[in-house]
Write a protein that binds this DNA or RNA. Structure first.
Length: 821
RNA sequence: GGGGAAGUGGCGGAACGGUAGACGCAGCCGCCUCAAAAGCGGCCGGGCAACCCCCGUGAGGGUUCGAGUCCCUCCUUCCCUACCA
């Protein structure tokens, strides 16, 4: 036997050659249709595992397919390099975050290259480089100028032990993830981005995103949480204070039997009665330290009477004002009217605190005197509601709103669940926020020509307090306006800031004058296919849309005001049915697999196990089949290698034998599958790889019977073209050894040929009353009459019909004949 | 509590409303070999002695000439989201 396929040598050879020849360099070319293929920017955690590999195998197959289908493909890669793990490494074992991150990037970049991915490495970006994050700062200043970045006090998660602010995801069951102390809520001054100003557009434009998974759009819709209602005020008895509430159920206004306010509500301390003050203060104090999650999800509804009463603006009834844990200070007005009969939460609260319920909306004919077991949540007809009695809920909402407007007590109002994006982090490893505080001038933005504000090196990172605030060399500066002494902002940016616009920097990564050139962006944007996990369905993908709309409003980008046309969420890769994680110690890294089985086999396996959107299980046996496939391909082609070209894959040979025709058909079925799965954007390459199996099975079979058949030579010469996007190294090696001097990856893909796909005989299924009784091998296009004549000659068909009257015949051309008797 | 996706051989999975189980993994039998590995050929949902035939896509109903596929009810699993007034 000739030499076995040496995947190690071949894979290395082609990776080197693609690199040297810049095979996948992307250039603007107005003559060609562009295609922007992008996988989500990875965090450089240190090692590439098969989960990443699945993502990149898919993205790379798509990019290579589109390139071979004639598109001008841009396919870049980079590193989301700021973030907490680097700082944790510093705290845990004194690593320098910068060195630690760079070492990780170096290793992961090596591994991504090891996969043989067709990235244009000249566009690689690393977000912790000053060349990148200076544009973060620049963009922040533009947001600031437009009033979209602002500072205000906000409740944050504060760990009293570590003296630091925690992100929501670092609070586990109300405790600090690191020291496990109970987290407190503190009001601290924080930077926000006014994403809420774009809430309506972000919501409405979801309609346009028909290339996105419906569930992702739904999640964004829910996250934005637009709700239409009314805001109006209750007067407080014996006080000048007024309490504003928001409701979507104005029709239940006459059923309000109490008023509930959040513990942080500013009027609480003003209206509480002397008798209740101590108890209320104690209650508020006990909640102060509780996070929102704890209050709302983990605790029972609790509350305490303030002693004060409010007056219902229309019924003029006197209702008690309670402080409760279930009203959120951050949503609406921080106060709600309590309507136990028509809101389940209010119902539970009222029952617990012996507050009355008043039914004011009922379905027609309902017995309203019966005691309630739960709130009645539906619309109905109003009862016991003054002038509004008898109206439908919908009409009453309008009429009551009109009345409140007329009395100048309220107005229609739209509220959002979406809140402004808190972007400041009291951390070191991030982009410094380019703001200076001057004693005389106050808050001063750093002028553009002084960017970047460099992140200082050698700052002690202890996990206590803000590292930058504790560094006088960084903190002390002079005011850009008056030159007087000033302090720098010591907070850094949320890393989602970087990833909200990186896809634009890829297009023009070395521009030192601006973040990107608009003309270049005009050519490449929007992203035609974005691939990444569903875990980013809301945050990253919503922030990116927000930024892009802001850019669009500035005319920095043109065309559509959505950055991502089509989105695909690949499924996770499990191992032994479990999510891979470092803590479980079950992470399958790619180095060993690549070494032992080869990259092409790994890529083929990851595409083959499941449809790409499904969760797949890594198995050590499963890849065997793909290793065999790679070797079979090599052996099938071997007799033709290093010889003169014996066939042209663009010229279909004339053959006569059935198995020769079947082979030509298998070739084109596989090609058609690859093209269809790509252009339909279904990307079910698992079925394409199955058809490659059938192709190679047919090839090896015919090769044994008729090694000199032109069909064999043709199938061998077409094979590298067809497998190129899926097994790129093997493909280029075969292509070269079959006598070509240029890479297969810049060739046109094999165009599926109808002549090869056509079949000479089909199996027509004959059913009697829906059950299969015979199968006929006939020429395609057979008429119903001819088929019927053949069918009734079949003994099993005759037996079933047995003189019965034929009532109906169902004929599906080239498929089936159903005789109903 | 709300929203979404999905239930097909031992396993991963195929299947425009029209031959269920393509293709592969694992397993079994055979060939090759002194032997093993690799490779090649075959078998591989259940019932039956059986190539006939019958049953079979989570359960039950429905629509249809015909349902894994469409509709309704239920069960199970997974993911997301949770007091947003």
């Amino acid at each position: 036997m000739a030499d076995a396929y040496d995947y190690r040598a071949v894979e290395q050879k082609w990776q080197q050659r693609w690199d040297e020849q810049a095979t996948f360099r992307a250039r603007e070319d107005v003559e060609k249709q562009k295609y922007y293929a992008l996988e989500m920017l990875p965090y450089p955690s240190g090692d590439l595992h098969v989960g990443h590999a699945k993502n990149y195998s898919l993205g790379d197959a798509i990019a290579r397919m589109m390139r071979m289908l004639g598109y001008n493909v841009i396919h870049p890669m980079g590193w989301d390099a700021f973030g907490l793990p680097a700082e944790n490494a510093a705290i845990a074992h004194g690593a320098d975050p910068d060195k630690w991150t760079r070492a990780n990037i170096a290793n992961m970049q090596r591994q991504v290259r090891l996969m043989g991915t067709s990235y244009d490495w000249s566009r690689e970006i690393t977000t912790c480089e000053p060349e990148y994050y200076r544009w973060n700062q620049w963009l922040f200043l533009r947001l600031y100028e437009h009033g979209l970045a602002y500072k205000r006090e906000a409740p944050v998660n504060w760990c009293p032990h570590d003296h630091t602010v925690l992100a929501n995801e670092q609070v586990i069951d109300g405790r600090c993830w690191r020291c496990e102390h109970l987290v407190e809520r503190r009001n601290l001054s924080q930077w926000f981005l006014k994403i809420t100003e774009y809430a309506d557009r972000l919501l409405d434009d979801l309609e346009k995103l028909d290339g996105w998974p419906e569930r992702t759009r739904t999640m964004q819709r829910n996250w934005i949480g637009r709700s239409e209602g009314a805001q109006f005020t209750f007067a407080v008895e014996n006080s000048e204070e007024r309490i504003s509430v928001f409701t979507t159920r104005l029709d239940t206004l006459f059923g309000a039997t109490y008023l509930a306010v959040a513990p942080e509500h500013p009027t609480v301390s003003k209206i509480v009665t002397k008798k209740q003050r101590a108890a209320v203060e104690q209650f508020v104090q006990s909640l102060r330290s509780k996070s929102e999650l704890e209050r709302t999800s983990l605790m029972e509804k609790e509350g305490i009477f303030t002693g004060a009463y409010a007056i219902n603006p229309l019924s003029h009834e006197r209702v008690p004002i309670w402080v409760t844990n279930y009203v959120l200070a951050e949503y609406g007005t921080g106060a709600v009217m309590g309507v136990p009969a028509h809101d389940q939460r209010d119902f539970e609260f009222a029952r617990k605190n012996a507050l009355p319920a008043a039914m004011v909306v009922a379905p027609p004919g309902a017995d309203v005197s019966a005691p309630l077991n739960e709130a009645f949540l539906e619309d109905g007809r109003l009862i016991a509601s003054g002038d509004f009695t008898g109206m439908s809920s919908a009409r009453a909402r309008k009429a009551i709103a009109d009345r409140l407007v007329a009395l100048a007590l309220g107005e229609p109002k739209v509220n959002y669940r979406l809140r402004d994006w808190l972007v400041s982090r009291q951390r070191y490893w991030g982009t410094p926020i380019p703001i200076v505080y001057c004693e005389k001038c106050g808050e001063v933005p750093v002028p553009d020509d002084q960017l970047p504000v460099l992140l200082p090196a050698d700052v002690p990172i202890t996990g206590e307090g803000s590292p930058l605030a504790n560094d006088p060399a960084f903190s002390n500066t002079t005011c850009p306006t008056c030159g007087g002494p000033a302090k720098r902002e010591s907070d850094t940016m949320d890393t989602f800031f970087e990833s909200s616009w990186y896809y634009l920097r890829y297009l023009d990564p070395h521009n030192s004058g601006k973040p990107w050139d608009q003309e270049i962006a005009r050519y490449w944007m929007p992203i035609d296919q974005y691939i990444g996990g569903a875990e980013h369905a809301v945050l990253h993908l919503l922030y990116s849309r927000f930024f892009y709309k802001f850019f669009h409003d500035r005319a920095w980008v043109t065309g559509a005001d959505e950055p991502i046309t089509r989105l695909f969420h690949q499924g996770m890769v499990l191992y032994n049915g479990e999510k891979m994680s470092k803590s479980r110690g079950n992470v399958i890294g790619i180095d060993e697999i690549v070494e032992r089985r080869g990259v092409d086999a790994m890529r083929l396996f990851l595409l083959y196990v499941t449809p790409p959107e499904d969760t797949s299980d890594w198995t050590d046996e499963g890849i065997n089949g793909r290793v065999r496939f790679v070797n079979r391909v090599w052996r099938a082609c071997e007799p033709f290698l290093a010889r003169a070209r014996q066939a042209d894959p663009r010229a279909l040979p004339q053959v006569s034998a059935d198995d020769e025709k079947a082979l030509l058909r298998a070739v084109h079925v596989a090609a058609k599958s690859a093209v269809d799965e790509t252009l339909s954007r279904r990307f079910h390459y698992n079925t394409t790889v199955a058809k490659l199996d059938e192709y190679v099975n047919a090839l090896t079979t015919l090769e044994q019977r008729a090694p000199d058949s032109p069909a064999v030579a043709y199938a061998v010469h077409a094979l590298p073209l067809i497998i190129a996007p899926f097994a790129p190294h093997l493909a280029d090696e075969l292509w070269e050894q079959l006598g070509h001097t240029t890479t297969v990856h810049l060739e046109r893909y094999l165009e599926p040929d109808e002549r090869a796909l056509a079949v000479e005989s089909i199996t027509l299924v004959v059913q009697v009353n829906g059950k299969i009784r015979a199968r006929l091998d006939v020429a395609p296009g057979i008429s119903e009459d001819d088929a019927y004549a053949l069918a009734i000659a079949q003994p099993p068909v005759q037996a079933q019909l047995d003189g019965k009257e034929i009532r109906k015949k169902i004929f599906v051309a080239d498929k089936l004949l159903n005789i109903v008797a």
